[in-house]
Design a protein around this nucleic acid. Structure first.
Lengths: 210, 210, 210, 210
DNA sequence: TATGAATGAGACTTCATTCAT
DNA sequence: AATGAATGAAGTCTCATTCAT
């Protein structure tokens, strides 16, 4: 690194860093507001003007960081999907060392636990689902995420049950992944959570022939 | 009844029928357009003006038959729910005479068959689900429908498996009813329909201890 | 009158009379409904469709008898103005025989009495005033009516007080005619009717130097 | 205050003022257009789109300053009422020092003068009266204003004529306040303004027994 | 002629996005 | 770069009037 470069770099950094910093803060404020509005007022009331007022970031600035309204929701959505994925990823490595039955149980518990989370997260998820259905772009993202999740899960299944063909692993992954919406609805319809836990776990274990 | 009266009656009928006929045709046109727009352009593009343009029925006429936009979606939704319910109702009576295992298999087959229907119906269903989440009124209707379906199914379960408590029948009904959304998603995600059939049937049968 | 003519006339009459009769009845129904709606729901809710439904006369028929909505209101308005005028006309003849003071008192009583009439008439008048201000055509009619009333009243004044110049009679007529809106508002504002009577009568009598 | 602060303050003011300035200008433009349309085309043509076109302010901007159409009319109405009230208020204090007869004459002159104003103002007042009758909200405002004006006037009467009971003062206030509409109509009907002045003044003075 | 279904201009309002400052 | 006022297309719905039957 030359002195010149270093100087230039430093100059850039002292000039840019604060800005990037501020930008990050603003972006965070916007996303926080958007989430809050989503949770407390629903997707219908999520207007850019509301976000601006709630976040204290001007509309103009919002459009500096996001090309349009949907991209704000998209960011929230992507973050959420990443969280979901992050919960499952560790199991991929673990699947090489753990025995099949134990891993499945833990994995199931993780997924199941998601449905007993706090109300705000639930509401956010619901509104995001709305958005996902309403904006085709988000729908695409959801598809992409599903693929990745299924790939991940079929890898795990492949690891713990090497006797299964790839195809069968994939189908099982789809099956388990799909089961999630069913659990969600079961609880929404006022089903008993204890029973849900037992039945769905049984479904999983038996489909895997444990 | 005199000949004259009979003639008059007939006359009235030919005078009245066309009006009702025309009205029915218009209503059908509106509903068809609404469905088409829903399927091909999504709920977002379902505006009264678009329906008017697409159906060839003027906005004014639309509002002669429907008090507001939502009521159009509501009608489509109700029709669809009625269809769904109509498929299950016959099983209630049958459940008194049939043996449990056979009945469950046929019932499952009916439900399952719904998911191999043509793409347009699937898309329509998807958009209706959107709408249901977006408009509180439809949400209410959906809740009501769910309750009825679950009551229906728990009655059937009560008939074929009298040894189960009412509570258990209800929970099972909720479980099976919820399973539906899972099947739907399984297929949407590109899951193998044959496998889906086997697995879900197995889930049903085993949860019932057959 | 020739036989031919007589026959023709009769034919026309037997063919036309019932129709004219029916027409009159329909027109009356329409006007009644319009008045009723005006009184009970206000000018804002006075739509041709409402009149049709309320009167039992179809929209189409209404447009057979009235060129447009305003003309319905116009008819009601004209009828009302005619009534008002009819109350004053007798005084013109009487003014030749009666003494000034007595006549003025009776005339004042008539006008004043109008403001103690039943609520429905009051409401109708209020709505008609609205309409008069809203539709320029009615405004014109009102102007015409005012002119006639003022001419009538200045004639009366001219008869009972021949010593006044025509110009002064006219100005007095305008003055008295204008006073009416004041009385109306006095009562609307919750003024004491007995006091109103005394004061306004005094104003009239003193302006005429009685 | 340091020079720096002062400078900053000034800077803030030059930064802020334009916005408030622009806003004020826009609001003024909107109100001016609304008045103009009211005067030249009547309440019927007073639509938000027309105001937008006429004022050169976009619909969106109009709705930035006014929550709905009626609030535009309300503003105009309130401004006008405030003007009217502002003219009378000074008389309340004056009424403690002035002799009754003089005060009444000046007060009358003020009120009377209002009716010799230019035609546009007269038309505007007329249209506002229309609006007041048409929109319940405005009606309420008018009622409130009437109450205040009558209270004000009865206070004045109470001050200059302490021998009158409160009740009599109120009734007189209502009487004088009502008289206004009569004067207005007198002039509208083409009555001679000089005569009007004399007669109405006489009515006032005599009712007060001067 | 009578009917009332059909029409569609136009009213009010919202909100994503732009742009002058 | 930041601001937030400004924009105007587009949405929902009404109602005077027409016109096919």
């Amino acid at each position: 690194m030359t002195v010149g470069e270093s100087y230039k770099d430093r100059k850039i950094s002292v000039l840019k860093e604060p800005k990037q910093q501020r930008a990050k803060i603003k972006v965070a404020k916007v996303l926080d507001s958007a989430k809050r509005l989503l949770v407390f007022h629903g997707l219908e009331k999520l207007t850019t003007n509301h976000i601006a007022k709630d976040s204290g970031v001007s509309v103009g600035s919002i459009y500096q960081y996001f090309p349009n309204k949907q991209s704000i929701i998209l960011k929230i959505y992507l973050d959420w999907l990443a969280e979901v994925k992050a919960e499952v990823i560790p199991f991929k490595e673990a699947s090489l060392a753990m025995d099949a039955s134990t891993l499945c149980k833990s994995l199931f518990r993780i997924i199941y636990a998601d449905h007993i989370k706090n109300t705000q997260d639930q509401l956010l998820e619901k509104e995001l689902t709305k958005a996902m259905r309403l904006f085709p772009e988000l729908g695409e993202v959801e598809k992409q995420h599903s693929s990745e999740m299924i790939a991940l899960m079929s890898d795990i299944i492949g690891n713990v049950l090497p006797e299964y063909s790839d195809e069968k692993s994939i189908q099982l992954a789809i099956f388990f992944y799909s089961l999630d919406s069913s659990i969600q609805q079961f609880i929404e319809l006022g089903g008993d959570k204890k029973l849900a836990f037992d039945w769905y776990e049984k479904v999983v274990m038996e489909t895997l022939n444990f």
